[in-house]
């Protein structure tokens, strides 16, 4: 069982991912609605895995990823991206994201991704 933190500015996406993970053995320990909050909560919650949206206000997912990796080089961050964000995803991958998932995704997709890293 892994502790998960969900980062997304859209409540819809956060709830969707959370609902999807309900059927897995993992536990959502926290959520964040901006990259900035995510970095702060990461220190506090120390989750095993983070799902990170890319486009967010205040601080985007890429910057948040970099900040988190700076604090914890072994951090496991899965980017949640959409079609058309190739350049951003590419940057995330180079900067230490453990992988990414492309919207729209299915329950099996996100669960298997997290299972793999857990």
């Amino acid at each position: 069982m892994a502790k998960i933190m969900i980062v997304d500015d859209a409540a819809f996406m956060r709830i969707t991912i959370k609902n999807m993970l309900k059927k897995s053995s993992h536990e959502v320990v926290g959520e964040a609605e901006t990259g900035k909050v995510a970095v702060e909560r990461y220190k506090l919650l120390n989750p095993d895995i983070v799902t990170m949206d890319i486009t967010m206000p205040e601080m985007d997912g890429i910057t948040a990823l970099k900040e988190i990796i700076k604090m914890d080089p072994s951090a496991k961050v899965i980017m949640v991206s959409a079609m058309g964000q190739e350049a951003m995803v590419r940057e995330a991958v180079i900067n230490g994201a453990k992988g990414f998932i492309v919207k729209p995704f299915k329950e099996e997709g996100i669960i298997s991704a997290i299972d793999k890293l857990a």
Partner: peptide, 27 residues
């Protein structure tokens, strides 16, 4: 090359930092 890549992303960060946070509510 990697350094080049980083400076590019730096520009992107500046842009996104200007986003204004508006969500203070739950539904």
């Amino acid at each position: 090359a990697r350094r080049g890549g980083n400076s590019e992303s730096g520009a992107a960060d500046n842009i996104s930092n200007e986003f204004i946070a508006k969500q203070n509510f739950i539904s």
